[in-house]
Design a protein around this nucleic acid. Structure first.
Lengths: 190, 190
DNA sequence: GTCTATAACTCGATAGAC
DNA sequence: GTCTATCGAGTTATAGAC
């Protein structure tokens, strides 16, 4: 299962054969079949696993490291930046990649992907909620949190295509500028 | 070739077999092989074709329909919105999808994907350049144009995952708010 | 529950006649 | 240049012994 998660991340779903999975897991085809009837089931299990991992792997480090909730957002994004660097752009956001690859092929997988996005966005929304009156009251915290995900996914995609952190950094910088303008506006209001 | 382009768009690269391609094209395996030795060659040809299509398909309609370069940006984004609706979220940005699916598998394809992104961003940058002093002078037009691509890709990804235009519309709305703030700042400066 | 062996099929790629 | 036929490898999935 962990082997499947790694391989889907590295090579994608279709490009990973069940043979690859059993080989990586040092198991046998029969054992895989015992736990998981089809490749689609394996994908669903992997997506469920990712949902459990988003807090300990992506969010918790940022929440522990940074008190200011508005700054914490950028610690989360910095995590993805580190991931890109550590893998030499070979791996970005596994959910984003699977999202576009799966498309309409497996509706149940698509739902689990949406659930993964919801979980991610939920944590970021918590930050914006916690920020309180640092943001103007009329700003939609949920929409803003989703926008952070939007920017992260688009930025990771381009960084991988170019093998360069420049598109990622420049996107984060513009997001930072936008949030700073919102904060400035909230301050001017008081 | 056109058949391959459609199928890579609909199902992705790995999920499309050369058999699918010859069937869609009503051709024979031998003919495909005559023009294109490998599946990777076919992918490169498709990506090259996309580079030619970005102006007539994506940009030209928006450039013809809208004079104001800052408004034109949103006509481009509206085109993607229409595409999502017309295909019931089955197809988004073909380059974005191929980008994440290919990853490191085919370096030459990765370069062509980056070239596609460059082309797209180039047209949007033209709009910002044309906007002149509607934007503050210190704003980096190239980075801002790339940010529009970032937002579009992230927004299309989520719209497809949720089968809903809401994440797309909300991202575009926030982008619109950001650009409006830049314009307001430029006006205040004069 | 885990192993070996393999069925049933599809894949990309190609040879050789026309 | 386009056809038919097919190779050999790799695919998902499974049966049946241990």
């Amino acid at each position: 299962m962990e082997a499947a998660r790694e391989l889907f991340w590295e090579k994608g779903f279709e490009a990973t054969s069940l043979g690859d999975v059993v080989k990586r897991a040092k198991a046998n085809p029969g054992s895989l079949y015992y736990f998981c009837k089809t490749k689609e089931d394996l994908l669903l299990a992997v997506l469920e696993r990712y949902r459990e991992l988003v807090w300990p792997v992506v969010m918790e480090p940022a929440f522990n490291a940074v008190d200011d909730p508005m700054v914490r957002i950028f610690a989360v994004l910095e995590g993805y930046r580190q991931g890109l660097m550590a893998t030499d752009f070979a791996r970005g956001c596994p959910i984003g990649s699977l999202s576009l690859e799966i498309g309409e092929a497996f509706p149940s997988a698509r739902e689990k992907i949406a659930a993964n996005f919801d979980g991610w966005v939920g944590w970021v929304k918590k930050c914006f909620d916690e920020a309180g009156d640092q943001l103007p009251p009329e700003v939609d915290r949920a929409a803003l949190a989703r926008f952070v995900l939007t920017v992260m996914e688009g930025a990771v995609m381009q960084a991988r295509a170019y093998h360069s952190l420049a598109p990622f950094d420049s996107a984060v910088e513009i997001l930072r500028d936008y949030l700073a303008r919102l904060v400035t506006e909230a301050e001017a209001r008081t």
